[in-house]
Nucleic acid binder design. Structure first.
Lengths: 110, 110
DNA sequence: GTCTAATACATAAATCACTTATGTATTGAT
DNA sequence: ATCAATACATAAGTGATTTATGTATTAGAC
C-alpha cells in the first residue's frame, strides 16, 4: 500500500471509471478489481466504499439492481448517463491534476 | 483551481520538493512559487501552509532562520539532512502512486 | 464435520488534513 | 489616504476516510 493520504479524493473517480470500464459490478467485486488493477497497492475499505456507492447513487450517477445469489445478496451498480459523463470528467480532472503536480514537483510521468 | 480534494495529502510533498529545488525560502514565497509552477492551478492557503511548516519543523525535517526585513519578519526554511531524504522519498512515493492510478484508471500519463 | 477465510452487505464513531474565518502588522501603489 | 499585497499566526468547522463493529452465507482445509 501507498501512503493512504494520497488516495484521498480519488475514491469516487476510481469507482466511476472502473464501473465505466467493466459495466455492471457489485461492491465487493469493485474492491477485488481495483486490488487486481493496482497490483495489490490499492485496497478499498468497505467503510469507505459502501457509503461512497450510496452517495453516488443518491446523486443519480449510479443505478442499482439487487440480485439474490442463493441466499446471499448482491447489489449490482451501473452508471447512469450522467454517471458516464461524470466518469469522463473525473478522469480528465485527475489527469489534469497529475500534469500540474508534475510541473510543481519537476518530475516526468510516463 | 482543481477540485481541491485531490490535493489532499500532497501538501508536505510539495513543500519538501520546492524547498529542495529552491533552497532557503519563506512561507509566503512558497505559496507564490507553487502558484507560478502550477500556472495558477495550485493556491496554497495560509491556514494549511503554516501549520504544515511548523509540523515539518517539529519533525526535524526543516530548519528555520528568522530574519527582519525592515520591520517585517520573515521565517526562512531550509531542509535538514533527513528533510532531503524525505523529499526524495515523498516524490518517489507520489510517482509510484501516479503509476498505480494510471493502471487503475487506464490512462496514459505523459 | 467443524473451523477459518473469503464473500457480501452495512453503519457509526473517531481521526486528521485542510478550509474558512479571523487576527495583527508592514509596505507599495493610486 | 485607502486598498492590495506582503507576512506571519491560530482556531473552529468540514468532510472524506479509517477503524471498529455487526450480520450472514459459502467454500476450503484438516
Amino acid at each position: 500500500m501507498h501512503s493512504p493520504e494520497l488516495l484521498k479524493g480519488t475514491l469516487q473517480t476510481i469507482v466511476l471509471k472502473v464501473l465505466k470500464d467493466h459495466g455492471k459490478m457489485y461492491g465487493y467485486e469493485i474492491t477485488q478489481r481495483v486490488k487486481e488493477l493496482s497490483d495489490g497497492h490499492i485496497l478499498l475499505t468497505e467503510g469507505a466504499l459502501y457509503p461512497a456507492l450510496h452517495k453516488l447513487e443518491a446523486e443519480g450517477l449510479l443505478n442499482t439492481e439487487t440480485v439474490s445469489i442463493g441466499k446471499r445478496i448482491r447489489k449490482y451498480y451501473t452508471l447512469t448517463s450522467p454517471g458516464k459523463v461524470q466518469a469522463k470528467e473525473r478522469v480528465a480532472e485527475f489527469v489534469d491534476f497529475i500534469q500540474t503536480m508534475g510541473s510543481v514537483l519537476q518530475v516526468k510521468l510516463n
